[in-house]
Simulated scan of single mutants.
Amino acid sequence: MRPTFLLGQVVGDGMNPTMVGNGRQEMRFELRALTGFRGLAATTIALAHFQKFYPTYLNAPFMWHNAVDLFFCLSGFTLSYVYRPESFKFSSYLTARVARIYPLYLATLLIAGATIAWPAVDHTAYPARNAFSDFVLQIPALNSWPIIGSGVHWDPPAWSISVEWLCYLLLFPLLLVQRAPSSTPIRLLCIVVLSSISYSLFVRYFDSNVMLPQRYQAQTQWSYWVNSLRGAFGFTAGWLVFRCFEKRDGIYVFCARFHWLIWCSMGLIVAFAYCDHINPQALVFLFPFAVLAATDQTSASSRLLGTKGLHFLGVISYSIYMTHFVVFVCLLDAFGPPATWTISIYAAAIILAAAVFTISYFMIEKPARDAIRAQRPIRPLRPE
């Protein structure tokens, strides 16, 4: 049986194939488990956000909203998997990144922004001057950048896209030309240190109020840096994880062999967090190793993540992530608080949400992405 090669889709991220040194394209296998992992994370984040509309939000069962840190790690791994320094062209890379994130980002920004001018919505605490400056910085996805941005995003999940954009433009080109530590223990230490700093910054300084569209001044300036720094640290951890994968070192072997231990540990953290015994942000310590474990496509957990259902969720995961909050707000406006919903309303809401996620992928995200990339056509080669 001939192996299946994918051009333009690697771990669900829809990226261009890399180029080998002689200018030819390097074929890459899709890591289906990572695509499914991305879909699982996006769905869990959506469910966690949905619970915010309940009065009993605290100790809710879906508290994995910090899976956005997993996205950062996955992005660092995926870009490292796709691009090579000897053939890297920033213009082609930038086109692929814009095509991947911007069309749907812009669409949800405009839809969410329409609520700012909606007469039925009270935004008296959000001055028009602030709204204009926030809009100007949201257009190029800069509003979560420290110093220049306020952190406000009208589609709340979009803050992480702004942070990823920072990693795409500034961090990844630097990491691409860096030599990762050659020692396995040093790589492990770096991953642990990055996760520790990210966790510490989040626990000490994270303030969700800085992202609300109203007048607010955080107690410390660190609160405006937390999201960007956790994104940079998670992204860098993903870059290191790729080096472990590339070398098939002891860290990779351990994660592949004991994948069940990693998943059980993640479940225990969620369970302890539910009982207020641990901060759920502690999951950030396990995300790099979970990503590495999922690259072993022979394990039971990877085969589960790569099943058709989870894989499809991974394919449309960006649409799930970017549209779910807008969908929930519309459902609230139509049906009132979720605590008052009947079973039939819940069923209709699930069907509607699933339809919006799928349609936004096939009608907005994918066509726009393909149209932008068509401006820089790539001729696929047959695998040798």
Rank of each mutant, 00 (worst) to 15 (best):
M63C: 09
M63Q: 14
M63W: 00
W64R: 01
W64T: 13
W64L: 14
W64D: 08
H65I: 06
H65P: 00
H65M: 03
H65E: 11
H65L: 04
H65A: 12
H65C: 02
H65V: 09
N66Y: 09
N66G: 13
N66W: 10
A67I: 02
A67E: 00
V68L: 05
V68W: 01
V68T: 09
V68A: 10
V68N: 06
D69E: 14
D69T: 08
D69H: 05
L70N: 02
L70W: 08
L70G: 05
L70S: 07
L70A: 11
L70C: 07
L70T: 08
F71H: 05
F72S: 04
F72G: 01
F72I: 05
F72K: 06
F72Q: 02
F72L: 05
C73V: 15
C73I: 15
C73L: 12
C73D: 01
C73N: 07
C73K: 01
C73W: 00
C73F: 00
C73Q: 09
L74D: 06
L74G: 02
L74Y: 09
L74K: 02
L74Q: 06
L74V: 11
S75F: 13
S75Y: 02
S75G: 05
S75M: 08
G76I: 08
F77H: 00
F77R: 00
F77T: 01
F77P: 01
F77N: 00
T78F: 02
T78H: 02
T78A: 12
T78W: 00
T78S: 14
T78Q: 01
T78G: 14
T78M: 06
L79V: 12
L79C: 11
L79E: 05
L79I: 13
L79P: 09
S80V: 05
S80L: 01
S80D: 01
S80H: 02
S80W: 02
S80A: 13
S80P: 03
S80G: 03
Y81P: 08
Y81R: 07
Y81S: 11
V82E: 08
V82Y: 04
V82F: 07
Y83H: 11
Y83R: 06
R84V: 04
R84W: 10
R84N: 13
P85G: 06
P85Q: 05
P85H: 05
P85R: 10
P85E: 03
P85W: 03
P85F: 04
E86I: 12
E86W: 15
E86L: 13
E86C: 10
E86R: 15
E86Q: 15
S87L: 10
S87A: 15
S87T: 15
S87D: 07
S87E: 09
F88T: 14
F88G: 12
F88Q: 14
F88L: 12
F88K: 13
K89S: 10
K89W: 01
K89N: 08
K89E: 10
F90L: 15
F90H: 07
F90Q: 04
F90Y: 15
S91W: 11
S91Q: 11
S91M: 10
S91G: 06
S92N: 12
S92W: 03
S92H: 13
S92P: 00
S92M: 07
Y93V: 03
Y93F: 15
Y93A: 05
Y93C: 04
Y93S: 03
L94F: 15
L94C: 12
L94D: 00
L94S: 10
L94R: 03
L94P: 02
T95S: 13
T95C: 14
T95Y: 01
T95N: 14
T95E: 03
T95F: 02
